[in-house]
Design a protein around this nucleic acid. Structure first.
Length: 845
DNA sequence: CCAGGTACTTAGGAGGCTACTT
DNA sequence: AAGTAGCCTCCTAAGTACCTGG
């Protein structure tokens, strides 16, 4: 790894000098050249090979395993290290490149000077504006600082390791593009089926509204406050919930109808009079709810948020010591001290920035007297507080069943009361009705604000949003809301401004709600529309690589990355406010490395950067020659910390995309590529005659291909190795059993041959069955083992929840007779109710 | 065009819960 | 009955996108 990195850095410096031979015209099939054409079992392995990424080894080897209670801490630490290691390497790089400076301040200055001179002469016009430059300098400073305290700890990048079973596979380029359908066109005769769908508010909301609105109002009058008992009386409610008291909540919405009507597709397929009526009502209502421009609802009523429980002061017996002496803290100071004490086990309470931020904010909560005494965090002894906290959580675990049940019931009561709202005649679940409790902020990755005090939110901070004709929730006694507004152009019920970043937080509805589900559906419909014009768009950007305009070229190359690699858009971020992470448009020169030739492939771009949540993206990608040349051009005369696409940002890119297709933005490519990959992989991997567990494995593999594409990672479970071993021994045991059973069967058969009576025959039969059963069990275990092994460091959930058109999965389940519960758990089924309701087995994305 | 602000989606981790094992 | 593994839910941070007003 180390070696690799330094090679990179050397390589980088040389490469920057290379002049681009303009318009060589050799551009060719490109995409095709790098994507999968053959689709055999092998391919799955190649797919996985990408996991190889760099040759990381398991963090297990270096992190001491502590059972149970330390599990999470370690996990966390692991990410820390992933991050740190990454940074560190970069630092090393940079230092090398400027004759290594050990004094931070020094190097900082030099850096600045360098920057200045650079901008005065030469390429100045290439660089954006002062603002940006300023940012860069700041960034540099920060990095230099960071390099200072980067611990010299040998740890693996990302904590990822490659699955052993594919180690012997020939070294791939590590590149994984989603299988593009221009290579292997999907038979898609049904392209037309949702042709009418219009994604944009303007389009969806301007029809028939007047007439319908009148109707709605009538209904509204009756239904205004359909509180529980009231509710069931309303016959025309298309809401079937409550009517059938099944174990799972009956699907609340006639999704299929709703969405059908949303896209102006009317069917006449009606089964029973009941259905007919419902559909009619649904039709009216849904049309009706096609509110004018930007209107999200008509009626909204809720009970307001649930506030965090107040702080309970510590018992007298729990002492805090400063400089060895007992000290009684004021309640406010004590509360904040307790936040710190609770985190004592975490590595980051040892971090400079964390401690600094914490201490500064803590002092703000102290009385003057306390402030005078407590001047040094290192002299604070929180151990008793920490122990008290641990004892408490231990006690909580040890509670009797009754006590636990009581708590559960109380929670349910709160949920019942505050967890739901009424939006347009429906009782909808709220996602996060509890206000975030105070605590110490811990951003992800290397966050400059870690340790800051996240203050307690009071009713006076809260903005309530509801409809004018709704009952306004009452604030807690003795308090009032900051504001009550009636804005039906937004979906949130409650908002407040958080004090760390100054951003606004919202309380919104659960994914199962109409408002979220519909949006979700729209998202996939947009992606499906992209499918129809993606070829055109690809041709377009390939043309643009040749443009005379720098901006256009950059846009085209960035778009190529977004399309091919499903990178995120990469909005600009405010410097020093968040961890230094990037997406496509915000890539910097230091994040890529160009290899004219690498491992037998031409024009390889090596990506290495921290993306969202400071998750590392590392990938080596062969690109088309023209892209490569363009990149060289973009990097000319730039410093590592300069923007790669200095003429581009997400606004420009999205503006362009908007022109190419209505509703198209950068993130649609991620959705599109994810879903199309799933569909394709499912087609390839599903073997018709396999049993259900094997099918599920195939599904998971397809899902995994997507997760890899989207770079959805997780820290390998700390108990992974162990649980794997356990599973293996189970398999071994099963094998033995099976062998025994087979032997029994054999002898039974022999007996039967001799005896020829029914009794022995019966014995043979039962033995046969036993063997069969064991075979199945063994099979199941083996499948489980494979699945788990392959899944070690990949998080499937994120793509499943956010990127994969659920209708693909639903269709697949229907087609192969796999129960939907095997693919989606309860929450997921709720979220995807719309898809379950509307997709049939031949749904095509 | 840009900066600041707002709304909404996407993200990984922590901790709880449950089912299973011993 | 206690221990444990893995799944699930909750939590909230961190993105994207778009709007507005200068």
């Amino acid at each position: 790894m180390e070696e690799d990195q330094s090679r990179q850095s050397r390589g980088r410096k040389e490469k920057i000098q290379i002049k681009v031979a303009e318009g060589d015209g050799a551009g060719n099939s490109g995409m095709q050249a790098t994507t999968f054409v053959e689709t055999t079992g092998k391919q799955e392995e190649r797919e996985l090979l990408r996991l190889e990424m760099p040759s990381w080894t398991s963090p297990l080897s270096s992190v001491k395993l502590t059972p149970h209670s330390h599990k999470h801490k370690d996990k966390h630490k692991d990410r820390e290290h992933r991050h740190k290691e990454h940074k560190k390497d970069k630092e090393k790089d940079r230092e090398k490149s400027k004759h290594s400076n050990s004094e931070h301040k020094d190097s900082e200055k030099k850096h600045k000077e360098k920057e200045k001179t650079k901008h005065k002469d030469g390429s100045s016009e290439k660089h954006k504006d002062k603002h940006k430059d300023r940012d860069k300098e700041k960034r540099k400073e920060e990095k230099v600082r960071a390099s200072g305290d980067a611990k010299v700890k040998k740890e693996k990048e990302n904590g990822f390791s490659s699955p052993p079973r594919i180690k012997d596979e020939p070294e791939d380029d590590g590149y994984f593009a989603p299988p593009k359908e221009d290579i292997k066109p999907l038979k898609r005769p049904r392209d037309e089926d949702d042709a009418d769908f219009k994604p944009k508010k303007i389009k969806t909301e301007d029809i028939k509204k007047e007439k319908k609105r009148k109707l709605e109002e009538e209904e509204d009058g009756k239904l205004k406050k359909p509180k529980s008992k009231d509710k069931d009386k309303k016959v025309p409610e298309p809401d079937s919930k409550k009517k059938k008291p099944k174990k799972e909540e009956e699907q609340k919405w006639k999704w299929a109808d709703l969405l059908k009507h949303r896209s102006h597709v009317y069917t006449t397929k009606k089964t029973s009079p009941e259905d007919l009526r419902l559909e009619f009502v649904a039709g009216v209502r849904w049309e009706e709810e096609r509110y004018p421009e930007g209107i999200k609802w008509k009626f909204l009523e809720h009970k307001g948020p649930v506030f965090a429980p107040p702080y309970e002061p510590l018992p007298e017996s729990v002492k805090f010591y400063y400089d060895g002496k007992v000290m009684k803290l004021s309640p406010k100071a004590e509360e904040v001290a307790m936040f710190f004490a609770k985190m004592l086990d975490h590595e980051y309470t040892t971090k400079e920035i964390f401690r600094k931020n914490f201490f500064k904010d803590w002092r703000k909560e102290m009385t003057n007297e306390e402030k005078n005494i407590i001047t040094n965090l290192s002299k604070c002894d929180f151990t008793q507080m920490s122990q008290y906290f641990k004892a408490q959580s231990e006690a909580r675990k040890q509670m009797s069943k009754e006590e636990k049940l009581k708590i559960k019931e109380e929670n349910e009561k709160i949920l019942k009361e505050y967890g739901f709202c009424i939006m347009d005649n429906h009782r909808e679940r709220i996602a996060n009705f509890k206000i975030e409790p105070p605590g110490l902020f811990r951003g992800r990755g290397n966050h400059p604000k870690m340790g800051m005090l996240k203050r307690r939110i009071m009713p006076e901070d809260i903005i309530i949003n509801c409809s004018k004709d709704a009952k306004v929730p009452s604030p807690p006694p003795g308090h009032k809301w900051k504001e009550v507004r009636h804005d039906n152009k937004v979906t949130w019920l409650v908002s407040w401004t958080e004090n760390i970043q100054g951003s606004i937080k919202y309380i919104m509805l659960n994914p199962s709600s109409r408002i979220k589900g519909e949006k979700d559906w729209q998202k996939y419909e947009t992606a499906r529309r992209l499918k129809k014009c993606v070829d055109k768009i690809r041709n377009q950007y390939r043309e643009d690589w040749k443009s005379k305009e720098m901006k256009v070229r950059q846009r085209a190359v960035a778009l190529y990355f977004i399309d091919k690699l499903s990178l995120r858009a990469g909005n600009e971020k405010e410097e020093g406010e968040t961890a230094d992470t990037v997406g496509c448009c915000s890539l910097r020169v230091e994040h890529i490395n160009l290899h004219p030739e690498l491992d037998g492939q031409e024009y390889v771009v090596e990506f290495d950067f921290l993306g969202k949540d400071s998750i590392r993206y590392y990938n080596k990608v062969p690109v088309e020659k023209r892209v490569f040349k363009n990149l060289q051009l973009f990097m000319e005369n730039k410093q590592p910390e300069d923007d790669l696409f200095d003429r581009l940002n997400t606004a420009i890119l999205n503006k362009h995309l908007q022109d190419l297709m209505e509703g198209l933005t950068a993130k649609v490519f991620r959705t599109y590529n994810a879903s199309i990959t799933l569909q394709q992989q499912l087609k390839e991997l599903t073997a018709p005659d396999e049993n259900i567990p094997a099918k599920i494995l195939s599904y998971n593999r397809a899902n995994r291909a997507v997760a890899i594409l989207c770079n959805h990672q997780r820290a390998p479970p700390k108990t992974f190795e162990k649980s794997m071993m356990n599973l293996q021994s189970k398999i071994d045991a099963k094998k033995e059993q099976l062998a025994d059973a087979r032997r029994d069967l054999k002898s039974a058969k022999a007996d039967a041959k001799v005896m020829k009576d029914t009794k022995t025959k019966k014995v043979v039969e039962s033995k046969k069955k036993a063997v069969q059963r064991l075979e199945e069990q063994l099979m199941k275990l083996e499948v489980q083992a494979t699945d788990r092994e392959e899944n070690k460091q990949i998080a499937l959930g994120t793509s499943k929840l956010n990127y994969l058109d659920p209708r693909i999965s639903v269709a697949w389940c229907k087609k192969w007779g796999v129960p939907i519960e095997k693919i989606y758990n309860k929450t997921q089924r709720e979220k995807f109710a719309w898809a379950i309701d509307m997709a049939d087995e031949d749904y095509e994305f």
